[in-house]
Amino acid sequence: MRVEVVIGDWDHHCCGDVVRRGDRVDWTCYSEAADGTLHETHHDLDGFPVTQVRGTIVHLLARETGQLTRIDRVPSGRALCGFDPDDDGTVFGLESGAELEGSSLDFVVVVEHSH
Rank of each mutant, 00 (worst) to 15 (best):
14 C>L: 15
102 G>Y: 02
24 R>W: 12
85 P>W: 01
34 A>P: 15
86 D>H: 05
15 C>M: 14
81 C>H: 06
77 G>L: 07
87 D>H: 01
91 V>Q: 01
91 V>W: 03
45 L>Q: 10
43 H>R: 13
38 L>Q: 10
66 G>E: 12
1 M>N: 12
10 W>R: 13
20 R>Q: 12
47 G>F: 06
88 D>Y: 00
11 D>E: 15
82 G>A: 10
114 S>K: 15
96 S>P: 09
20 R>Y: 04
44 D>L: 04
90 T>P: 01
89 G>V: 07
26 D>K: 04
94 L>E: 13
50 V>G: 05
107 F>E: 06
106 D>I: 03
9 D>L: 03
7 I>H: 05
75 P>C: 00
32 E>Y: 15
43 H>F: 12
22 G>V: 04
34 A>K: 14
101 E>I: 02
6 V>E: 05
94 L>S: 10
92 F>H: 14
33 A>C: 02
66 G>T: 09
59 H>F: 04
101 E>Q: 04
112 E>V: 08
38 L>I: 02
103 S>V: 02
10 W>A: 14
85 P>G: 09
60 L>H: 07
103 S>F: 06
32 E>M: 14
88 D>S: 04
94 L>D: 11
55 G>L: 07
47 G>K: 07
3 V>A: 02
1 M>S: 13
110 V>P: 04
70 R>Y: 14
45 L>R: 10
115 H>D: 15
51 T>K: 11
90 T>G: 04
70 R>I: 03
47 G>T: 08
20 R>D: 05
48 F>E: 15
61 L>C: 07
55 G>N: 11
55 G>S: 10
38 L>C: 08
15 C>G: 06
70 R>T: 11
8 G>A: 09
111 V>G: 05
7 I>E: 09
111 V>E: 06
112 E>L: 11
106 D>W: 05
80 L>R: 12
107 F>N: 09
89 G>E: 05
100 L>Q: 07
21 R>W: 01
68 L>H: 12
38 L>E: 08
25 V>N: 01
48 F>I: 15
40 E>H: 13
50 V>D: 00
23 D>R: 12
27 W>I: 10
88 D>R: 01
31 S>R: 08
104 S>F: 10
21 R>M: 13
94 L>N: 06
88 D>L: 01
19 V>C: 08
3 V>E: 12
23 D>V: 05
58 V>G: 09
22 G>H: 03
39 H>V: 11
64 E>N: 01
25 V>W: 03
35 D>G: 11
13 H>A: 15
58 V>H: 01
38 L>W: 10
16 G>R: 00
47 G>H: 08
65 T>F: 06
101 E>S: 06
56 T>R: 15
15 C>P: 12
62 A>S: 13
41 T>C: 01
82 G>V: 00
58 V>W: 01
39 H>Q: 02
95 E>L: 14
53 V>T: 07
8 G>R: 04
54 R>Q: 14
61 L>Q: 12
86 D>N: 15
38 L>H: 07
89 G>D: 03
75 P>G: 00
101 E>D: 13
100 L>C: 12
80 L>S: 03
105 L>Q: 01
81 C>N: 15
41 T>E: 03
25 V>F: 06
26 D>V: 02
37 T>I: 09
115 H>E: 14
37 T>C: 10
19 V>M: 06
103 S>W: 07
10 W>H: 11
67 Q>Y: 05
56 T>A: 11
83 F>D: 12
9 D>W: 03
97 G>E: 09
69 T>M: 06
4 E>Y: 02
31 S>M: 11
87 D>R: 00
